[in-house]
Amino acid sequence: MTAAAAFAAALDRAQRTASPIARLDAGEVIGLGTAYAAQHALVARRVARGERVTGVKLGFTSRAKAAQMGVDDVIIGTLTDAMRIEDGGAFDPRAAIHPRVEPEVAYLLGVDLVDASDDELDPATAIAAVAPALEVIDSRYRDFRFSLDDVVADNASAAAYAIGPWSSPTAAGPLDNRAVRLELGGRLAQAGSTAAILGDPVRALAAARRLAREHGFALRAGTVLLAGAATAAVPLPADGLVEATIAGLGRVSFRVERGATADGSPDGGPDKQEDAS
């Protein structure tokens, strides 16, 4: 087993059992190449179990967040259908270790972004639709502490996401400075602006294309790009309503509810026994 495959197995197990693990990078530097290889191996394990890749997410798109984490570049992670929470649906907090939630902007890609020329990167063609989104992040590392390589291997802390109603990019208009609210149980938890996302969330297109080309991601038309967080992430409450609102774009919500499955249907929750790997 390669180092990347071993990292992937450890992270996969941590996620499936909702049990944190020690940092991979604690003793020696993994390197960004191996870290992305580990992430691809991790996603391959999930796909082998029947999950389908639905898109990508960017991380560290806020200068403040990047400085806080001591990193200096944006990172990319993979979204799958198992992470999807329906708008208005429910999320079982037992599926995560120490989940946090943040308000984001989501794009629906209108072109295959990796192969897109600079002209095709024009938002008018590259973006089929835009929506408010909520992302649940959850580090598989103890105490939410990690290096850049660690978090890349850990699929950029991706855990779950919900997307609100899609709008056409022309109807939505420029998104470089829209007020954003994150509310927990109807109370304001974070207030910010979409400007926190790379200065303008539309820059996520070029950033995602660059990272995808460098690190071997497919960015197909019809898949989702989570552009990054508009405010700091806050700990996910144990229960209750989580709602994000972007001025002039709309709102998206889900409930935190023990015993829920990602699509909101009743279920016994994640199976913490199953994992023989």
Binding site: V180, S193, A195, A247
Partner: peptide, 20 residues
């Protein structure tokens, strides 16, 4: 619902909104 961005040399150094 006012978005706020404060830029220095073209990059946001502080972001927020009226609700803050």
């Amino acid at each position: 619902e006012l978005g706020m961005r404060l830029d220095h040399e073209g990059e946001p150094v502080s972001t927020g909104s009226g609700a803050a």
